[in-house]
Amino acid sequence: MQDEREIEILEKRALELARISQEDPRRETSIDAVAFVLGGREFALGLEYVREVRPFSGVTPLPAVPRFVMGIAAIRGEVISVVDVSELLGVTQPPLTADAGLIVLQDKGSAMTFALVVNGILGVVKIDPEELLTLSASYDYKESRIVQGVTASGMVFLDGRALLNEPSLKL
């Protein structure tokens, strides 16, 4: 008896879930994005321009380069520039811990590629660009094309392509 009721409930739930997923408009418009923490704030980057995510395992510093270039790292037989965008995004990067990660970005169009160093990787999230809120004027980077908007939970959604082609990161 108990079992039958349980099955009944479960079936009902399954049906509801199926209905939700069918009706949910998010299935149509939402994008997979890598969520990460940088300087205490949560950010996300669409997977389209993310080539790979990996733990941070140190960089070799370079002489005579701007501060945002942390150095170079070898990733899969390739030397990649490691960039700290905290200043650009208006946050202060605390010291890196064992949680630190690298997000390797690549724009197949412009062939630009570099890696972002972040304080922690949160995982892959779904973001619906249509539900993004525009930034309030209090952010320094309001004008920038890099920020596409903020999710209801306060996560800042970044445009990977704009970041890769951001003039102030060019050398």
Binding site: V79, I80, S81, V83, A111, L169, L171
Partner: peptide
């Protein structure tokens, strides 16, 4: 050095 660090 890849595309980003050309010309340093």
């Amino acid at each position: 050095l890849g595309p980003h660090l050309q010309g340093i």
